Simulated assay, not measured.
Amino acid sequence: MTTEKKQRSEQEWADTLTPEQYAVCRQCGTEPPFTGKYYHHKGIGWYHCICCDSPLFSSDHKYDSGSGWPSFYDVAKDDAIEQESDLSHGMVRTEVKCNDCQAHLGHVFEDGPPPTGLRYCINSTALKFVPSD
C-alpha cells in the first residue's frame, strides 16, 4: 500500500505553521538545546508530526539522552521517517524527515540504548503530543 505524500506550497506551509515551526520543519533549523516543550515531557502517548499529524514516535521509546532534545530509540513504524545524509555545519550527520510531508525533524545517531542502539534526536517544535486514551 502506498501512502500519498502530503505536499503544500512553501506559502501554504508558512501560513499554516508558526515562524519557529516553519524555520525548523521547512528550513532545517534547530531549536536551542534544553528549551523544547517535550524535552522533559513524560506523558504516555504518541508524538506526531506538527506539519501533517503522522505518528512518528511512541512515548514507550522516549528516554533522557542528556542531549538537550527529546530522544527516542525507535520510530512508531518502519516507514514513519526518511533518512538522508546531512553535511551541513561542517559535520557528517543523518537527517531525519517525516516520510509523509518531508518535514525536517532532527537527526539520528548511533549512540543510543538497546535494543536499537539509535538516538533519534528530535526538535520539540516538529512534534505534537497525542496522549493515549
Rank of each mutant, 00 (worst) to 15 (best):
C121H: 02
L127I: 10
E95S: 13
E10L: 15
M1E: 14
E12K: 13
K5D: 07
E110V: 07
S9R: 04
E82L: 15
G66E: 04
E110C: 05
D53Q: 09
E10D: 15
A23I: 01
T3L: 13
F109H: 05
F57K: 03
H41R: 07
W46V: 11
A103N: 05
C49A: 06
E4K: 15
T18N: 10
W69D: 01
T3Y: 10
S132R: 10
D86C: 08
T30S: 13
S88D: 07
V75R: 06
H48L: 13
K37V: 07
P131I: 06
S85G: 04
H107T: 10
G117S: 00
L17E: 12
C49E: 03
C101D: 07
D74E: 11
S59H: 08
K37P: 04
K6W: 03
I44M: 03
Q83G: 13
S58Y: 05
C101F: 08
K5I: 06
H48I: 08
G106Q: 09
F109C: 05
Q27A: 11
D53M: 04
Q7H: 11
D74R: 07
S67K: 04
D111S: 13
P19C: 12
K5M: 05
K37R: 11
V75C: 01
V92G: 01
Y73V: 01
G90M: 04
C98A: 06
A76N: 10
D74P: 09
T16M: 15
H89E: 05
V108A: 00
F34V: 11
Y120K: 09
Q102Y: 09
K97F: 05
G112E: 03
H41N: 02
T2P: 15
T116D: 04
H40Q: 13
F72W: 02
S71I: 11
C49M: 06
P113S: 10
P113V: 05
S124C: 03
S132Y: 05
C28I: 02
H40N: 08
M91Y: 03
P19T: 14
F129W: 01
V24I: 11
D64Y: 01
D86R: 08
D111F: 13
F129I: 03
I81G: 00
H61L: 01
G68A: 00
P114I: 03
C28E: 15
M91K: 02
T18H: 13
D78R: 15
